[in-house]
């Protein structure tokens, strides 16, 4: 069996989750505390991947990143970054595609904390950053775990976006979900089954661990 697609899948999932974790905290923190009129707009944008067919997202990213377009050619010419049919492109697409799965649990967690916690910290002279790091985040650990696991699992299961923007290049963009599709196309059911079984087992174990450690929080959130 070719392990490369599985390795690629988990590499993509780990990198995507790590990037999402870092960028989602400021977004969620802003969304949970702002009264700005742009909030609904940003919330909608963040949530779009939940309802939009992945192919739509993939299509627009394909168009945007294409060297035939201004943005794509700028990336290519000035930064030397090629996002279509590359692993880097997959990461960018996955980050956008899984954004709501990280932002929403963190936002929900932050909103559930009494606002007096951060106000108390502010009156003690502590900055917003210190307050977030030392007070807010440590008190929403279950939400952070939920966000990490959901984003990870969602990236592992990604298919449409990856196919659109990454194509099917072995060792570069051919992740497990695409390998499964490939093997089925080739009527190679045994190989498809091994990939599927591994994905199934890994995802099952991760989610089970979350349910066990999170004391039902995850269930409450997903409902």
């Amino acid at each position: 069996m070719d392990w490369q697609p599985l390795v690629l899948t988990f590499k993509l999932a780990v990198i995507t989750t790590a990037i999402l974790f870092v960028i989602s905290i400021p977004i969620a923190s802003w969304l949970s505390s702002t009264k700005s009129k742009f909030r609904p707009v940003l919330e909608t944008l963040v949530s779009m991947p939940l309802v939009l067919p992945p192919t739509v997202l993939g299509f627009y990213m394909l168009v945007a990143f294409s060297p035939a377009n201004a943005f794509g050619s700028w990336l290519n010419d000035w930064l030397g970054i090629k996002l279509i049919f590359s692993f880097g492109g997959l990461v960018v697409a996955s980050v956008i595609y899984s954004l709501p799965f990280m932002v929403q649990p963190i936002q929900a967690g932050l909103s559930s904390l009494p606002s007096t916690l951060k106000e108390a910290s502010y009156t003690m002279g502590k900055s917003k950053f210190t307050t977030l790091l030392k007070i807010l985040l440590p008190n929403i650990k279950p939400s952070l775990l939920t966000g990490i696991v959901l984003s990870f699992a969602h990236t592992v299961g990604e298919f449409g976006v990856v196919l659109m923007i990454g194509g099917n290049m072995p060792g570069k963009t051919k992740v497990a979900s695409i390998a499964i599709y490939d093997e089925v196309e080739a009527l190679n059911y045994a190989a498809a089954n091994s990939y599927s079984l591994i994905l199934f087992t890994v995802t099952f174990v991760i989610l089970l661990l979350v349910y066990l450690t999170n004391g039902g929080y995850f269930k409450r959130f997903s409902q």
């Binding site: 009494p114 007096t116 916690l117 106000e119 108390a120 502010y122 009156t123 003690m124 002279g125 900055s127």
Partner: peptide, 13 residues
């Protein structure tokens, strides 16, 4: 942060 008032909240916080 600059006013540094000692504030005891109703819910203790």
């Amino acid at each position: 942060q600059q006013r540094k008032v000692g504030y005891v909240f109703q819910d203790y916080a």
